[in-house]
Design a protein around this nucleic acid. Structure first.
Lengths: 356, 356
DNA sequence: AAAGCCAAAGAGACCGGTCTCTTTTATATT
DNA sequence: AATATAAAAGAGACCGGTCTCTTTGGCTTT
């Protein structure tokens, strides 16, 4: 049996109006900052409001205006430094523009993402920023946009969804580092990602639902093919969803005689775990294994050796997505923009010639 | 000049009622899941709702019920791994309990925090979880609770605020590592924190407004005193608010002839920066400098040498705060709980005997 | 068959703002 | 001074739900 809810007895415009001796409409004009009011009345209402400690009820306001002043943000996992930094970018822009942010983690699970969207729709958010778990499964997003709700996609795009999108040039970055590794003589290059497939095995890039990662793998495979390396699909490993999973996958892979001479880690969490596994197995970096990681996490410069990384403009990703969304919310129409932010390889010391 | 707002034309209970051929009240009973309805009518309304793609308007619901199903969370900086992990704990619990989370960064600035509280109050959140920037300045929090709004404090408490509080045993942890360092022969031990004072100098622990950090410094100074080390106040450095600041402070300190032989870093960001400075200056850890950091960031085990840290149950901090808040929201009354979670020193290899 | 009861459905006020429409008051015009 | 015009203030509907109060109708009871 629930207690009666706390029920915060709040001061309303009517209360203020009464105290100030004016009509509700007039008090509302002063308090809401619209319409025209005389200086004298404005003063009286302001004083009354202060005396009663009036606090506007945004909920009621949203009710009539149809705008909630809220942006819904759905990301995979706020605990991941990638997302926490992107969210920081989003919240900074949102706050500046007068919006608050409702944050929901999807855990990279589409059904959770759908539930999140439903919740946010019910809360009548003014717009959405989503990092879709699966590019192939965006019906819920399409539906949201159909009702006219502005949507911006973060880090992952969708060909079938014509909305503002901000991604990094993942493919280009992957191509660059793959080329570099091949030039250093590497032939057994593994790509390790958290993205998973139903049977935890990789066959083709099409199986990968996370757009950013799919583009990277496409770039990786494409460059390999150009270099006449065949069957590199077998070197793509999926399902590194937790440190434990990553550990298991990396250890298994590095314990085989035909172990990779280079590993590309799809995010800093994975890069870190590979690093740990090498320590455990007594493999030297870059002597026995070259390591490149996506995401320039702060610690990557401080390990021995420091890790060569693909620096993504993560804060900028969030910032830009939020800016685009805010523009839409302010009524700017026109074509959906698809913005691709540049990445950059930060050369440190974790890659070297392939061992002989 | 603003465009007219997008104005999502939504399907209302009245629409559904009309389509189902029943009264608004009856449709509302089915849709809202309250009151008694016949099976036949329930079916009809459900079908109509589905056909029209009815989505409840939580805003309107909140309007009458007085509950918004939302928890307001104010933290220093979501980008900081400490907070992003704690927020993960909060959101997990909140979602489980059917609440969504509005997240606002205070940037450890009290006036921003005040604005955040005001915003959240206006949005009529059901409860608040705050990590107060200043323990000494909590009038805005007191005021929020006065109106009956449940509040839980995260990582930082307040003696004058009688609300649910979840902190770590910071003082105890600081005492432990200080004792350890002294036992190893260290006499020049520096404590480095992001918390700042108006003139960026430290005099007494009372100057430190962030509760968790103040307790650590108290513990540090107390143990020093017990060991007859005097004037250790001079070894407490404040204002390491950004990596750049930290770098400057650490470098200045480590370049003096009378440099510290041990540094206690108040969070992992600071620990990392000290580590970098040592590299730059060619100081060996732990040969020339012993380093202990608060917060067991994932990378601390992977540096050379790995860093000895104070492991705080960060996720648990958020989780517990959220649980306490949810209990209050469900009407559980009674005394405010003050929960202190245990920390643990993770011994790695960054501390050693003081150099001779 | 009349009275009594209870489940089921309807009518309409209400939450706290916004906003349109109308009335009143002040200022400008000739 | 009389009229035109604009500014200021008031009255009340409305947003989309919830919820109380009232009415309806089917079923039991004696």
């Amino acid at each position: 049996m629930d207690q009666s809810p706390p029920r915060i007895t709040s001061v309303t415009v009517a209360d203020v109006a009464h105290k100030a001796g004016v009509s509700k409409a007039t008090a509302a004009r002063v308090l809401g900052g619209y319409g025209t009011v005389s200086e004298r009345v404005r003063e009286a209402v302001t004083v009354a409001a202060r005396a009663l400690d009036y606090r506007p009820n945004e909920l009621a306001r949203s009710m009539t205006t149809g705008r909630s002043g809220t942006i819904g943000v759905v990301v995979g996992d706020i605990e991941n430094p990638f997302f926490s930094l992107a969210v920081r970018g989003i919240t900074d822009v949102a706050r500046q523009a007068g919006f608050t942010v409702i944050l929901i983690n999807s855990g990279e699970d589409v059904s959770a993402e759908k539930a999140a969207i439903r919740t946010l729709l019910a809360k009548r958010v003014d717009g959405l920023i989503v990092s879709p778990a699966k590019e192939s499964d965006v019906e819920h997003l399409r539906e949201a946009t159909r009702s006219g709700l502005p949507l911006a996609l973060l880090d992952r795009g969708s060909d079938t969804l014509d909305v503002d999108t901000v991604i990094a040039d993942d493919r280009h970055a992957a191509e660059g580092i793959t080329r570099r590794l091949i030039a250093l003589g590497h032939r057994r290059i593994a790509y390790l990602t958290a993205c998973d497939t139903p049977d935890h095995r990789f066959r083709t890039a099409g199986d990968i639902n996370t757009g950013s990662v799919r583009r990277r793998i496409e770039g990786f495979l494409c460059v390999c093919q150009e270099a006449d390396l065949d069957g590199m699909e077998d070197w793509v490993h999926v399902g590194a969803v937790t440190p434990e999973h990553t550990h298991r996958i990396a250890a298994a892979m590095l314990r085989t005689p035909q172990r990779p001479t280079a590993i590309i880690a799809s995010d800093s969490l994975i890069g870190l775990e590979v690093f740990k596994v090498c320590r455990e197995l007594g493999l030297g970096i870059p002597g026995d294994l070259s390591l490149v990681s996506f995401h320039d996490a702060d610690w990557t410069s401080v390990t021995t050796p420091p890790v060569t990384v693909v620096r993504q403009p993560v804060y900028g990703l969030g910032e830009t997505a939020a800016k685009l969304l805010v523009e839409r919310l302010n009524g700017k129409g026109g074509e959906a923009s698809r913005i691709v932010l540049r990445t950059e390889v930060v050369d440190r010391a974790s890659i070297a010639d392939a061992p002989v």
